[in-house]
Design a protein around this nucleic acid. Structure first.
Lengths: 158, 158
DNA sequence: TGGGATTATATGGGCGTCAATGGGTATACT
DNA sequence: AGTATACCCATTGACGCCCATATAATCCCA
């Protein structure tokens, strides 16, 4: 299976359409190249997207829960009712629903971020911010890591 | 098999008709696109709906319960005796019986909520309330959420 | 290997089709 | 007759399909 990788910035046209990057389209499963599933990210003000196949698997698991349980209802409610199947037109474009645009402050441009089995859609500036923070956090961890591993070398550093 | 997913708010007209969302109609089985089954939700002040095929599945499940158990009797009574088969007209609309409207405080608009193999019909404001509660409860139970979603990711790994 | 030729991708816009909604009228049931 | 429901037709706005173009990527041959 292909993965969603790399980053792309694309424009939203007057009709609200935006091109799904070509290599993301290629990463969709053969049988459903003209549909993606969109939903709010649980962690960020961004949108996440994936193939329909992925959702079918999740739905199967939810349906195996006890039919009368609260959990079954909650999961169905929070996951299945909050996803938006979205058609991709012949040119590879799709529409982002208004409430998802609001959620992620998207207006005229978006940044697609490959995340492996799924991808994210960000307002471009927010994407850059997110990138910085993410990197900073990594560097911080590295430092503390090296302070554990190389405590002596650090004393030479400044 | 197609699933009921996503949410839609539709209006009830003067004659009491309301459109079943297009993608819900598409999710009905090929052989019975002009009928849905309605019944009171056991858990909420809402209506639930599904295809006739699904009711057959539920009946099977009930049959598998201990024949002499109280539960068997209760379920059969609560579910099978109170379902309402409802016709869908050529334009994709149907009528919501009055007692179901009362049960769910529905007046002029409804929210359709996809739940996988079935869907719910809510009074729109109540739907929003329910959404919040459901999500809050789920966040508390993050562990069980990831147990639903994680195994899927693994299945994509090779 | 350079550079023109070909193809693919991102983007723009016209237009037909479909979904949601409203309303008239025929048919059926009581 | 009176009420309820289904069928038919109409309207509106949104969306998908088609065609077009510019830029970018790739190819291919001298």
């Amino acid at each position: 299976m292909e993965l969603f990788v790399s980053q792309f910035v694309n424009k939203i046209d007057k009709k609200g359409r935006v091109s799904l990057p070509s290599i993301f389209r290629n990463a969709l499963p053969q049988n459903s190249k003209n549909e993606i599933i969109l939903y709010k990210s649980l962690k960020h003000n961004s949108i996440e997207g994936c193939s329909g196949d992925r959702i079918k698997d999740i739905a199967d698991r939810i349906n195996k829960l006890d039919f009368f349980s609260e959990d079954q209802d909650d999961f169905a409610r929070s996951i299945l009712s909050e996803i938006i199947p979205t058609n991709i037109d012949k040119e590879g474009r799709f529409l982002i629903p208004d409430y998802l645009k609001k959620h992620s402050n998207i207006t005229s441009e978006v940044t697609f971020v490959g995340q492996g089995h799924y991808f994210q859609i960000w307002e471009p500036k927010a994407a850059i911010e997110r990138q910085k923070k993410s990197r900073a956090r990594l560097i911080k961890k590295k430092k503390s890591l090296s302070s554990i591993i190389f405590p002596i070398q650090r004393s030479y550093e400044k």
